[in-house]
């Protein structure tokens, strides 16, 4: 693995990006919710409320359930946040501007995505309570269904690059972005992106009909951390989407990193808006669609991308 940035720069850089991203997600989500609910954007409140809520979380005590798996419960948010940081470290901000340019960046990212379901399962299983456990099993069904379409959608981006490295995947889009080359790829990726960060229509483990699902028993800082970890996963997914499908740092007039940030923000906005404007899909339907429609579609996407290369 080629590590470009020394560790004492890389770690703070990733942490800072994630912290900013999480805050941005919280603010943007509130603004959108306010606009859609008809109470106006209320920008000032939207900017302050996440900070105030976070401060409150630090003052509230954590409460345990009866006979929980304390280790697993504490590990889950850390694991999810760590996976987000790991995924973000693979995404190049500009030419040569990447924390870890793994030769197998694509596989590493997929492994991180696969571990998300472990984090969610752990988070729902460890409190030893019915609703979180239900959320955990729901996510098991959901995540196992979208793993394969996700892998296939990402795989199609590696074909034109002839490499599994994320940097090479971006470089291969110098003339033509993947979103044009394989139009099915980005929608497929976004569906899965929503699932990985269990947001909006694909928020099944932490759904409102389970009164919060896996996080129903979280209190205080643990609740805050889980929310932050989810939001950072969203940031990582948006950044990877921008690199894999929207041409990464390529774009006219502006410097590369600016383009990369703009594209990430655009994808984030899209995902957040979808979260407020699309109803939660029924789990049975989602599993059916994943296996019966998304997998063939993703396979077709791979074949078509391959055919263009021949």
């Amino acid at each position: 693995m080629n590590v470009y940035a020394p560790i004492q720069i890389a770690l703070p850089a990733v942490a800072l990006t994630l912290a900013l991203g999480v805050y941005l997600v919280a603010v943007a989500d509130r603004v959108m919710a306010g606009v859609i609910a008809g109470s106006g954007p209320e920008l000032r409140a939207a900017m302050l409320t996440p900070l105030r809520g976070a401060a409150l979380a630090f003052l509230q005590w954590r409460r345990a359930t009866e006979r929980p798996d304390a280790g697993g419960w504490a590990l889950a948010p850390a694991l999810l946040g760590g996976l987000a940081a790991f995924a973000l470290a693979l995404v190049p901000l500009g030419p040569g501007l990447v924390v870890a340019d793994a030769d197998t960046g694509f596989v590493a990212f997929s492994a991180a995505i696969a571990f998300v379901m472990i984090a969610v399962y752990l988070h729902g299983w460890s409190p030893n309570s019915a609703l979180p456990l239900h959320g955990a099993y729901r996510y098991g069904a959901q995540a196992l269904s979208f793993q394969i379409p996700f892998l296939l959608a990402m795989l199609a981006t590696a074909l034109p690059a002839e490499s599994l490295s994320i940097v090479r995947i971006v470089e291969a889009q110098a003339t033509l972005w993947n979103v044009v080359r394989e139009p099915v790829g980005l929608p497929l990726y976004l569906v899965v992106g929503l699932g990985v960060s269990f947001w909006g229509p694909l928020n099944m483990p932490d759904a409102t009909d389970l009164a919060g699902g896996t996080s129903a028993e979280d209190s205080g800082v643990a609740r805050l951390l889980w929310g932050a970890a989810r939001a950072s996963m969203l940031v990582a997914v948006a950044a990877m989407g921008a690199a894999g499908f929207l041409g990464g740092w390529f774009g006219p007039f502006l410097p590369g990193p600016v383009w990369m940030i703009l594209k990430t923000l655009a994808l984030l906005g899209l995902i957040l808006a979808a979260g407020h404007l699309l109803a939660r899909i029924r789990i049975e339907l989602f599993v059916l669609v994943s296996w019966a429609i998304l997998i063939p579609l993703a396979l077709l996407n791979v074949f078509v991308s391959g055919a263009f290369l021949l």
């Binding site: 596989v107 590493a108 997929s110 492994a111 696969a114 571990f115 472990i118």
Partner: peptide, 14 residues
Amino acid sequence: SEFLGMVLLLMMAG
């Protein structure tokens, strides 16, 4: 053996 390591992780999680 980066590829094998990552594939092992990917496989084992599921």
